[in-house]
Computed example of a mutant assay.
Amino acid sequence: MEYELAELTEAKRQIDSTLHKLYETVKTFEAKENAARYKSQITLAKRRIKAFEIAVSFIEAEIARKS
């Protein structure tokens, strides 16, 4: 599928915003007194971070190709 540069840029902006929130979520859970209790939430957030980082790298490559 082909996407316009504006669509790619907006998608990257939205993912970057979500990534920021996920980083903060991980920090919050890890700072809790009993962080082990939140292990599954921390793992899930870290997996989502990795997935979004991969998506961003593909979007950035496509933006560079179109520029």
Results as ranks from 00 to 15, higher is better:
Ala6Glu: 14
Leu8Arg: 07
Thr9Ala: 03
Thr9Pro: 00
Glu10Ala: 15
Glu10Cys: 11
Glu10His: 09
Glu10Leu: 13
Ala11Phe: 04
Ala11His: 12
Lys12Tyr: 02
Lys12Thr: 09
Arg13Trp: 01
Arg13Pro: 08
Arg13Thr: 15
Arg13Phe: 06
Arg13Lys: 13
Arg13Glu: 13
Arg13Ser: 15
Gln14Trp: 06
Gln14Lys: 14
Ile15Pro: 03
Ile15Lys: 03
Asp16Leu: 09
Asp16Trp: 02
Asp16Asn: 14
Ser17Gly: 13
Ser17His: 07
Ser17Phe: 06
Ser17Glu: 07
Ser17Pro: 03
Thr18Pro: 03
Thr18Val: 11
Leu19Asp: 02
Leu19His: 02
Leu19Thr: 06
His20Ser: 14
His20Gln: 11
His20Gly: 09
Lys21Gly: 13
Lys21Trp: 06
Lys21Cys: 11
Leu22Trp: 03
Leu22Pro: 07
Leu22Glu: 09
Leu22Gly: 07
Tyr23Leu: 09
Tyr23Glu: 13
Tyr23Thr: 11
Tyr23Asn: 13
Tyr23Ile: 08
Glu24Thr: 10
Glu24Ser: 06
Thr25Arg: 03
Val26Arg: 10
Val26Pro: 02
Lys27Tyr: 04
Thr28Met: 12
Thr28Trp: 05
Phe29Asn: 06
Phe29Thr: 04
Phe29Cys: 03
Phe29Gly: 03
Glu30Lys: 11
Glu30Thr: 07
Glu30Leu: 04
Glu30Ser: 07
Ala31Pro: 00
Ala31Tyr: 01
Lys32Tyr: 10
Lys32Phe: 10
Lys32Gln: 10
Lys32His: 10
Glu33Thr: 14
Glu33Asp: 12
Glu33Arg: 14
Glu33Ala: 11
Asn34Tyr: 06
Asn34Arg: 10
Ala35Gly: 08
Ala35Thr: 09
Ala36Ile: 11
Ala36Ser: 09
Ala36Val: 11
Ala36Phe: 01
Ala36Lys: 12
Arg37Asp: 08
Arg37Ser: 14
Tyr38Asn: 05
Tyr38Pro: 06
Tyr38His: 12
Tyr38Ala: 03
Tyr38Gly: 04
Lys39Pro: 01
Lys39Trp: 00
Lys39Cys: 00
Ser40Gly: 08
Gln41Ser: 14
Gln41Gly: 10
Gln41Glu: 15
Gln41Tyr: 15
Ile42Cys: 02
Ile42Gly: 04
Thr43Asp: 15
Thr43Ser: 15
Thr43Met: 08
Thr43Asn: 15
Leu44Gly: 05
Leu44Glu: 07
Leu44Ile: 05
Leu44Tyr: 10
Leu44Pro: 06
Ala45Gln: 01
Lys46Phe: 00
Lys46His: 01
Lys46Asn: 02
Arg47Trp: 00
Arg48Gln: 10
Arg48Asn: 09
Ile49Pro: 00
Ile49Gln: 03
Lys50Met: 04
Lys50Ile: 04
Ala51His: 04
Phe52Glu: 03
Glu53Val: 15
Glu53Ala: 15
Glu53Pro: 13
Glu53Trp: 14
Glu53Arg: 15
Ile54Lys: 15
Ile54Phe: 09
Ile54Asn: 13
Ile54Pro: 00
Ile54Thr: 14
Ile54Val: 15
Ile54Gly: 12
Ile54Cys: 08
Ile54Arg: 14
Ala55Asp: 11
Ala55Tyr: 01
Ala55Val: 04
Val56Met: 05
Val56Gln: 05
Val56Leu: 12
Val56Cys: 11
Val56Glu: 02
Val56Thr: 12
Ser57Asp: 11
Phe58Trp: 13
Phe58Asp: 12
Ile59Leu: 09
Ile59Asn: 04
Ile59Ala: 07
Ile59Met: 04
